[in-house]
Nucleic acid binder design. Structure first.
Lengths: 125, 125, 125, 125
DNA sequence: GTGGTCTAGACCACA
DNA sequence: GTGGTCTAGACCACG
């Protein structure tokens, strides 16, 4: 299983950032799990029609944050997710980022239902 | 009636683009209508704690697309032309912010299910 | 106060890594403190006679790890150091990295005294 | 008599360079003398869990500098020429590993004083 | 084949 | 002026 990445050329979001976001959200949805291999740097560069360095930069940042692991000469793989912290703290953080997210979405005129629809679709992929 | 803009400092989306998106969305949802006045460049720059040039750039781009009109010495106003934000555009934006949201949540070890639970609870409140 | 960086061309250690190490160790010795400004990307590139991208890469990684903060259009600054964890855990970690360090040094024929001399010199700088 | 090589996976120093440095140091300190046999390429590769090509490369470079001699089908031996590792070279290596050590410690929030305390204690033991 | 490092140089965002 | 993004292309380390 691997992922398909699509760049939004009009969004103004840096390509490498879009790749990072795509990988991270794939991990969140379970689309990618520990041990899964990411597309090779060169292959993804070809697919997206961008420079390999840009893909490499995205992968490097993902590795620095511990989400993926790189094996030289072999490829890049999703790392073991280590989740810790006490439950209360986790709930608080989740509440906070959800709140900020809703705030941002509503400033664009989206409702909670719009959001739930969008997220649900990602689940069934 | 005027709008309140909030910048997401961490999203990686350029400030001027966030401002543009915010104004566009406001017009699309009717929050802003023809003739409504936008905040002055200076005022918005102060509020957002960013460089006036950045606001200016956003306004300039909005003017180029005909969405707003600047009257020298008076201010910037929403144009008379009713511009419907097409569905594709709205969907693109929703997709983008949902993806960035998932990405951020994933960095904290949350899954899509964690998020859906949290958001569902807000719905029933 | 700023720092002086010297590259070891023969070591085989990547330039960007050497810069990172230099900044980090400067923070450890107190040579650099919170709020201190790092050399600009371009200036350091000129000083070291390397490409600005290489310096930029080092600074980017330092920012990702939270050690420095970048203010667009202004420069790069040493961040606030946040140290937490309980004392026992910290002692354990320090012991471990000291042990590994001594092991590596001794494999090169260096004694504890050699090391202490070298480190003491850094203190008086 | 042969030597034991330990790789520092996180230092960023290329494996082949670490091997070279290790051998050089061993010769300089007398740990290895003229005629002593180095581990075979294959054996060392297995021990270090790295690619034989990497070991081979290190040995090749050592041979080019005349420090070791390879006898086809027999093995690799420390050369007859007594090569003193000059002081500058030793100092460079010590500086490098001390800097990397400080860098790593700094990432964990430790200061030079923390380290000196820890090392001093080991001295009095 | 894989990823990693570095360069030269362009253009953008921001102060 | 500052840093950020991207490209094109070279060369290295490793499997």
């Amino acid at each position: 299983m691997t992922i398909e990445v699509q760049l939004d050329l009009k969004s103004g979001v840096p390509f490498y950032r879009q790749i990072i976001d795509r990988v991270k959200s794939s991990i969140a949805t379970g689309e990618l799990g520990p041990g899964d291999r990411l597309p090779t740097v060169r292959q993804l560069a070809v697919d997206l029609k961008i420079n390999p360095n840009t893909v490499s930069r995205a992968y490097t940042e993902l590795e620095l944050t511990g989400l993926v692991e790189t094996q030289m000469g072999s490829g890049t793989y999703v790392g073991q997710v280590e989740v810790e912290q006490d439950d209360m703290e986790r709930r608080r953080i989740l509440d906070q980022i959800c709140q900020e997210f809703l705030s941002r979405a509503s400033s664009h005129g989206f409702t909670l239902d719009d959001i739930l629809d969008n997220l649900q679709q990602r689940k069934s992929r």
